[in-house]
Amino acid sequence: MEKLLNLTLKVWRQDGPKAKGAFETYKLNGISPDSSFLEMMDILNDQLINEHKDPIAFDHDCREGICGTCSMYINGHPHGPDSGITTCQLHMRSFKDGETITVEPWRSAAFPIIKDLMVDRSAFDKIIQAGGYISVNTGGIPDGNAIPISKWHADEAMDAASCIGCGACVATCKNGSAMLFVAAKVSQLSLLPQGKIEASQRAKKMLSKMDELGFGNCTNTGACEAECPKNISITHIARLNREFIGAKFID
């Protein structure tokens, strides 16, 4: 059996959106390196409950890397030090015995803290509502291959569509910009014939909603791409820029 880990955790605790937060330090012993990061957090919460303390609030849902709910800034990286994964896919084997792990919430003006490690990411929903959809008369069931789509377009659109809207891009961006998210959501539709019709309207609506909600301006550092659990490329941002500028010139 592998050696169990004894850890020190520095976790951000904050009672509510307006309350003043601070780091609390916890000792946690006997963690299996095979457990996931969230299982480790569950064990810590069990320990806190047994001590009659308030457990740490954190977001989690599917625990298989597809819902985009888990959100922790671990040791200076959103979703932890490993790349291309969400927090729930992070395993304790990524940490050493005796290590101090610092866990913080996403910090961005557009993502206010609800409690402890939970942040309000409804700004992303508002951006989607502004234009992240296609308008079609559904009618009967269309033929599967009635609309030809090239392999390249299908691949590029699928790469963009792999965005789970977790907000790691905003969390890591020094400008608090949501450009990678907006670019992915614009690209996944505008690359396909069904989404092309509303493409320029969509780019304008989603981008102005992003600006309105207080996200920052992209300076192309590429930190978002490096931290994205789905490795979404910043070249989608170039496409969004292209579509937005094109739409403005047509106006």
Binding site: K10, G21, F23, Y73, N75, G76, H77, P81, S83, T102, E104, R107, S108, A109, A110, T172, K174, N175, G176, S177, G214, F215, G216, N217, T219, T221, G222, A223, E225, A226, E227
Partner: peptide, 21 residues
């Protein structure tokens, strides 16, 4: 604008990402 969008609270731990100049 970007400083404002970043918010008042800073991260206690920040690390450089690979490939970011």
């Amino acid at each position: 604008l970007n400083l404002k969008a970043r918010g008042k609270d800073r991260y206690a731990v920040t690390k450089r990402q690979e490939g970011v100049s």
